[in-house]
Amino acid sequence: MSGSELSGGLRHGAVQPDATSQEIYDAGMAVRREVLGGAHVDRANAAKDGFTEDFQDMITRIAWGGIWTRPGLSRPMRSAVTITAMVAHGHWEELAMHLRAAITNGLSRDEIKEILLQTAIYCGVPSANTAFKTAQQVFHEMDAATDTSQPKTTPTPPN
């Protein structure tokens, strides 16, 4: 990225000086859907009520529109940072969601394994142990979903 791009609006992602709140929200929702999947976002939006609506709006605008749209880090790098934060703070349900997102964002299972090994040193072995169990379960679920979506064929017996 050139210096002129950094001095212009590109360094801010969706949060441009003249961006409306709606534009930031829309950009955040687009990234949120791309990263987490439409089904997950639809479930989160369907579950919101008067108590949680402001929170859902905030994470869409600030986390997804304000941070995930910025060009300074790739999505795989953002996923790596997010995985580490989830492990560090013991947010296991969020970790599971972001492990799926990391695969969507282009991280391989081997790269995720390396991230989790790194967390063992900096976040603690007990946290990494739970993270590995969580990843193992997520990958098993992903594999099972892939296997059930494949048409079952009966092998032809040899002649």
Results as ranks from 00 to 15, higher is better:
H12G: 11
A135T: 13
P151H: 00
T119E: 02
M142A: 15
V87Q: 02
M97R: 07
C123Y: 04
W68N: 08
V31T: 10
W92L: 06
T148R: 12
T82F: 03
A96S: 09
N129M: 14
H40W: 07
F55N: 08
G3D: 11
P157L: 14
A135H: 07
V35T: 05
I24P: 00
E34I: 02
A144C: 08
A96M: 04
T130G: 08
L10Y: 06
M77R: 11
E5Q: 13
R70A: 05
L36S: 01
S149V: 00
D18Y: 04
T119R: 03
R78E: 06
A128F: 06
Q16L: 15
I115S: 03
M77I: 15
G28C: 08
H12R: 11
R75L: 15
I83A: 02
E114T: 01
S127P: 06
G50F: 10
R11I: 15
T20G: 00
R109D: 13
M97P: 00
A19C: 03
A19S: 12
T119L: 03
R32T: 09
S7H: 05
A101Q: 02
P17A: 04
I59G: 03
L10N: 11
R78L: 08
Q150P: 08
M86R: 03
Q150G: 07
G38Q: 13
T52V: 11
T156Y: 11
L73F: 12
P126V: 06
W68Y: 13
L107K: 02
G66E: 07
A14I: 00
Q118N: 09
A19W: 00
T84D: 01
R43C: 09
C123K: 04
I112E: 02
A120H: 03
A80I: 04
E111Q: 14
F51W: 09
W68R: 11
G65F: 00
F51I: 15
Q136I: 14
T82Y: 03
P158H: 15
K133P: 05
P76G: 10
L107I: 00
A27W: 02
I24D: 00
R33E: 12
A101N: 01
P157K: 15
I121V: 11
V138R: 05
T156M: 15
V41Q: 10
I59V: 14
E114V: 00
P76F: 07
W64H: 04
E111V: 04
D42T: 15
P151S: 03
E53F: 11
E5R: 09
P157T: 08
I83E: 02
A144R: 13
Q137S: 14
G3C: 06
D42N: 10
L73E: 09
F139W: 11
A135E: 10
I103K: 06
V125T: 12
I112K: 02
N159M: 15
L73R: 14
S21C: 00
Y122I: 05
K113L: 07
N129I: 08
A39W: 07
A88F: 04
S74K: 10
M1V: 07
A63N: 12
N45M: 15
R32K: 13
G72L: 15
S2G: 09
M77P: 05
I59L: 09
D57S: 09
M29I: 13
A101R: 01
R43K: 06
Q118F: 11
H89M: 08
A14Y: 01
M58Q: 08
I112G: 03
A144K: 10
S7L: 12
F55S: 13
A96L: 04
P151E: 00
H40Q: 09
R61G: 01
